[in-house]
Design a protein around this nucleic acid. Structure first.
Lengths: 157, 157
DNA sequence: CTCATATAATTAGGTTGCCTAACAAAAACA
DNA sequence: TGTTTTTGTTAGGCAACCTAATTATATGAG
């Protein structure tokens, strides 16, 4: 473990690269994809505060992906019948996205899948270490949010 | 923060999804890609124990990607002049991969890039929290290593 | 010693999850 | 009114993986 041979930075890099590749949802080709699930969560969360539906721009900001990416995600979810688009009543440029009833069911299944994926880990770590982990991940994200290690492409937010 | 509204599992999922997308090496289209860098590290590390070069299968195991993926990575690195392939002396099926001199220079640059990317975070967290983070990531990986959340495709190792 | 089987790597083709650039439509402003 | 800005979409591309099939070589069973 001599620092010169395998520095801490390199270990962290390797750990993050491995964590990145974990297939949390145990997804194997059927139903909504992991990125769909993330979008579903976001749309559902918004629906609690604004029943008219979330905008593409808001989704783009919250998911931290470009608007064309959101369009593709929504095309996909719409094709699966999980969301519906409608043009905003007062600004005809913006489109509002809401969950359909089937989308809501898919959301609940996704929530279960995520719970299944993480509750084992949470039990394994125990409440203290789980809280530490969540806190540290938050700090990592906060640090890089302020220090320019942006997603590929270097969006300026 | 009511558990029923945004369960811990969902928060962890979201955090991991965001961490996954960080562009650690600040890569913007020039030089070896992040996955190349990971391979470079692996090849270099092996060269310390075995001067004849690492095999494709060994790289596949250590990087946790399929052998065709390793082949593609190696094609790429060879094209960039960073590695060289040679058939093994005693088993003509296996090919041995070593860093070229330019590959070694690229390795050193990559090491610096990783250090640049992580030393800021390490300073920000301080030694105690950095150690905690490294330890927790290790536990997460160990847990999922034993609990079947394998990389996409569900390889059986 | 030969033939079937196992192993190493490659080729071919596909998928996910992103991106930028260019655009059309609508709103805001000057 | 006309220019500028904002919103979302279309088009096309790329990174980083995968599986299935193939080739070449080695190994083991009779």
């Amino acid at each position: 473990m001599a620092i010169s041979e395998n520095p801490l930075s390199q270990q962290l890099f390797e750990s993050f690269m491995r964590v990145r590749k974990l297939n949390w949802l145990n997804w194997h080709g059927a139903g909504p994809r992991p990125s769909d699930v993330r979008a579903l969560f976001c749309i559902k969360k918004d629906s609690a505060v604004d029943g008219t539906g979330i905008t593409v721009t808001a989704l783009s900001n919250q998911l931290r992906v470009s608007t064309p990416t959101v369009t593709q995600l929504m095309n996909d979810l719409e094709l699966q019948g999980l969301v519906e688009r409608s043009t905003d009543a007062t600004d005809r440029r913006v489109i509002r996205v809401r969950l359909t009833e089937e989308g809501d069911r898919a959301f609940k299944r996704a929530q279960s899948a995520v719970a299944d994926a993480f509750n084992g880990l949470i039990d394994y770590l125990g409440p203290d270490q789980t809280a530490e982990l969540a806190g540290l991940l938050g700090k990592v994200l906060a640090y890089y949010h302020d220090h320019q290690v942006l997603p590929t492409g270097g969006r300026k937010l």
